[in-house]
Every structure is written in structure tokens, then in C-alpha cells.
Amino acid sequence: MKDTATSAPVIEAKNLNLVFETGDGPVQALKDVNLTINRGDFVSFIGPSGCGKTTFLRAIAALETPTGGTLTVNGMTPDQARQARAYGYVFQAAGLYPWRTIAGNIKLPLEIMGFSKAEQDERVNRVLELVELAGFGKKFPWQLSGGMQQRASIARALAFDADILLMDEPFGALDEIVRDRLNEEVLKLWARTGKTIGFVTHSIPEAVYLSTKIVVMSPRPGRITDVIDSPLPKERPLDIRDSRAFIEIAHRVREGLRAGHGDHE
């Protein structure tokens, strides 16, 4: 699975610390985090709330600033990477502009980045097809279901060809059935585009099903307790979740979560 010859570190964190100053004193959101993510990896971050998984993703996206250690994205600082538009970010809510059509929403980053009109249209059609929303470009967001809206927001993040896709619990608000479908689609998307994906979730099956690398985190202070390189093949039908290998990884993730949780709760 792991091909060291072609894989180069895309994201590298060394002794990363992040402390929030709050009214009740400092909160250690990340403590001594070390992680290397290679090109083409699908990395899931899993852990209970407050474990720093979202904070870590936001730090990669330069939406939070670490207070110690080093973090590089494509060999640059996260802020340089942000200015080079190195990644697309998908939030928990689709966050589509209600006054723009689906196509208009996908054009938003393209307009800001100054793509030509023809190029915008071409890209909108391509990513709509990629997330299986072809033909919905002229609809307004409220005319689409929650799952379709979230697919449109993924299309928006894909439109400008960033090679890193960061997703913060993108399907957290959707029901199980829609979620399964979208998980399958994300895998297909990943296979077709070869992007490096960072994916925050609190669902164990979701993490195991999607990832080549599962990062188990625990709270107070937020830290990494286990990193699992998945032995599952790249080709993953939904029923792989009944396989022995799958169940073993899920078990190891659960163990990691339990160990990290300690006797806090």
C-alpha cells in the first residue's frame, strides 16, 4: 500500500502545540502533535469532542495559528499555502449562498481567483459531474436536499483544483443512509482525482471505511494517541465493512479512543 518512492510529505507537523487563551485561562487544544501526511493519503481524524481534531484541520488551513512547533503544507507555512490556494475546505454545514444558484455558488471561488468566464463555466460543469449533480446548476440551494447541498459544497471546494481537500465533519448533519452514499462517492472522487484528503469525523465506521491512515485523538489536552495505516485495499465496496480486516481496524480504533479517554468521564 505504502509506496515510499512516490509519496512525499504534503503536510508535516512536528511537536505542534496550540493553546487558546480563554476567559477561564489557557486551554491546550493541541499538545505535541507529530504527524506526516503523504501525497494521495486519505487521512481521517477521529476522537471525541474537544480532542483537537477540528483545530488541527483548521491549523493546516491557517484558520488557527499554532503557538509552538512547526507545521508545513507543501513545504510552506500554512498561511503561504493558503495564499497559494493549496486546499479546498469543506465545512460541517454546506454554507451555500442562498442568493446564488448551485452553479453560482461553485463559481464563487473561481470569480475570486479570477478565472475567465469560459473557464468558470467549463469547471462548474466538470465538478458538478464529479459530485453527480449534473443538471442541477440552475437550482437554488433551498431546492436541494441536505445531502445534495453538501455535495455542491464539495464541488465548490474542488472547482479550483487545489490538491489538498480538507473536510470537517462534512456529513455530520446527514442521516446514515445519505451518509453511506456520500462516503462511497467521496472514495470514488478520491480515486479519480488523487487528491490528499484530511477528513474529520466522529464515526468509527466512516473513518475506517474511508481512510488509508486513521489518526486517533483524545482530549484534555488534545493529542494523538494512535496512528493506524489501514491495510484495506483502495477499491472498497460498502460490504467491506463486514470483512474481518475492517472489524479488526475498527476494534483498534475503539481501543485507542477508550485508552485516550482515560477515567475522565
Binding site: Y87, G95, Y97, I112
Partner: peptide
């Protein structure tokens, strides 16, 4: 979240004003 999204696009304050 909307403002963060624009930040990931490295959008200027002007773009944020007119578009959002």
C-alpha cells in the same frame, strides 16, 4: 464559517464585501 470559507480562498476584504 462563511468568513472562514472566503479566507481559504484568500479573498480580499473587497471581495468579501461585494460577494458576501
Amino acid at each position: 464559517m462563511q468568513l472562514d470559507l472566503l479566507k481559504t480562498y484568500n479573498a480580499s476584504a473587497g471581495a468579501a464585501f461585494w460577494k458576501l
